[in-house]
Simulated scan of single mutants.
Amino acid sequence: MRFLSWLVTTAIALAVATWLVDGIYFTGPTRGQAEIEHKLVPLVVVALILGVVTSFVKPVLTVLSIPFIVVTLGLFLLVINAALLKLTSWVAGQLDVGFHVERFWPAVGGALIITVVTWIVDGLVGDDRR
């Protein structure tokens, strides 16, 4: 149940990021029922890719970046999250999922939005990990 809750939360956060940030998008139809049908499975796949990338790559990057994180009072974590979102976009491109993050600044904005939306949705849904 916890995995499903995490997956839905991450998918919602990704959907909000693609909706709000110009440089983050899914390929395919852009309106109506066709858009929902075409982008629902890729959204879940990208959420899974982001979860795998975050689980395996983020701890390594965080440990290697401790001096930068300390000097920037934690703001470098946002850069790490943006890099992970770009890496997710690259992996999705290799798998032909149709998810794209164009440049660095949209990745930073998307990482910030994903973080905030995840906090909000976790707060509303309730976190059963405790």
Rank of each mutant, 00 (worst) to 15 (best):
S5K: 15
G28R: 12
L75A: 14
S5T: 13
W105I: 10
H38A: 01
A83K: 06
V53Y: 03
I12G: 08
R129N: 00
T27Q: 15
L87V: 13
A111T: 01
V116F: 08
E37H: 10
V63L: 14
V97W: 10
L64D: 06
W19M: 13
T10Y: 00
A47D: 01
A13M: 02
L40W: 15
P67Q: 09
V70E: 06
A92F: 09
G123K: 04
V44E: 10
V101N: 08
W119M: 12
K86N: 06
T9P: 02
S55T: 13
K86D: 09
L4Q: 03
E37C: 05
T54F: 04
A11N: 06
D22L: 12
D96H: 15
A34M: 10
W119R: 02
V125Q: 02
I113T: 09
G74Q: 12
V108M: 11
I120D: 02
V125I: 06
F3T: 09
S5F: 14
K86I: 15
Q94Y: 09
V8C: 04
P29E: 15
I66T: 11
F3N: 08
K58L: 14
S89P: 04
P59N: 05
G74E: 14
I24D: 11
G109I: 02
I120M: 02
T27Y: 13
T30L: 07
F68A: 12
W105A: 11
R129T: 03
L50C: 02
Y25R: 15
K39L: 00
P29H: 13
V21M: 09
I24N: 11
R130T: 13
I66D: 08
G32E: 09
F56V: 15
A111L: 04
F56T: 14
S55V: 08
A13E: 03
G51Q: 04
L48V: 10
V52L: 15
I49R: 04
T62K: 12
L48R: 01
V97K: 07
F76W: 15
L7G: 01
W90R: 09
